[in-house]
């Protein structure tokens, strides 16, 4: 019978039930809505804080790398635009990883008192970051106009890179979210991973300066595809990442999401007992 819920012990390794998540979509929207209201309540600046972090990072790197070391000499666009465009999509990725992997622990109160598909919690974080990204994009557009750049037809490819950024971030986060609920030190591992990825991804540095063999090796990093693809689609900088590396990045994303889904489902079954 369709309307009967069967409650049984967890068996083996399964993927999260996406149909159930879909049934709870209004809860997801409510959470996103609520978190935004909370985040900017009793602040003066409001949504400015969504762009504050990438913007200040951009200012810092512009002063340091461009000002001191002349990092911008090899690129055809102004360095602030070069850095800020990459920083906002990087921030999207890294915040998804960070916040989604913390989401079960943060919502432990709720998890122990009510049943909602647990996957909702990381998804809420991802959705929130997408909204933050949209706010930051407005600033980026402003900067582009100020520097006299207009997007070309390349912008049609932009959703591909967005999907890659969010999907890869979510995949990593799903692997760690369950562990984080049990062991608070999982977060240090997550931080280590994002820190490491930041340095191997051409966010603030220019990939054309890499010596062989690193000039091809670096592109196996899916985030390199995301960042360079994003810059290309929006600012027309350089060339689009090759089909091979794009496909490879998608492969990595799918594997991460599958592994993340399996681990998440596995750990969520006992989550209410241990958070």
């Amino acid at each position: 019978m369709r309307d009967v819920t069967v409650i049984e012990p967890a068996k083996g390794w399964l993927l999260p039930n996406l149909r159930e998540v879909w049934q709870y979509r209004h809860v997801l929207l409510n959470f996103v809505n609520r978190n935004f209201r909370i985040a900017y309540r009793q602040t003066i600046g409001g949504p400015i804080y969504a762009v504050y972090n990438p913007f200040m990072t951009m200012v810092g790197y512009t002063l340091m790398l461009d000002g001191l070391f002349d990092a911008g000499q090899d690129i055809s666009i102004p360095y602030p635009l070069f850095a800020f465009s990459a920083l906002i999509i990087w921030t999207l990725f890294t915040n998804v990883v960070q916040n989604a992997s913390m989401s079960l622990q943060r919502n432990s109160q709720l998890i122990q008192k009510i049943y909602i598909p647990r996957l909702i919690f990381p998804l809420v974080e991802a959705a929130m970051e997408l909204v933050n990204f949209a706010i930051a994009s407005v600033l980026l557009f402003g900067m582009m106009l100020a520097y006299g750049y207009f997007p070309s037809a390349n912008i049609l490819m932009l959703p591909v890179y967005l999907l890659l950024a969010v999907g890869t971030g979510l995949g990593i986060a799903l692997i760690f979210a369950g562990f984080q609920a049990r062991f608070r030190d999982a977060n240090y591992v997550v931080q280590l991973i994002t820190r490491f990825l930041f340095f191997v991804t051409p966010v603030v540095w220019v990939s054309s300066r890499l010596p062989a063999p690193f000039d091809t090796l670096y592109a196996y990093n899916p985030m390199a595809v995301v960042v360079e693809g994003f810059r290309w689609s929006l600012l027309g900088l350089g060339e689009a990442p090759s089909a091979f590396f794009t496909a490879f990045a998608f492969g990595v994303m799918v594997v991460l999401l599958l592994v993340g889904g399996l681990v998440f489902r596995r750990l969520e079954t006992t989550i209410a007992d241990v958070v």
Binding site: V4, T5, V6, I7, K113, I114, Y115, T270
Partner: peptide, 27 residues
């Protein structure tokens, strides 16, 4: 019964939409 946690063995079947009020003002 509200699926917050799973049993170690055995089975429970519930017909229809389940709601639980384990706490006043959850969320």
């Amino acid at each position: 019964l509200s699926r917050i946690t799973l049993p170690t063995s055995g089975v429970a079947r519930v017909r229809g939409k389940v709601g639980s009020l384990l706490e006043v003002g959850t969320g």
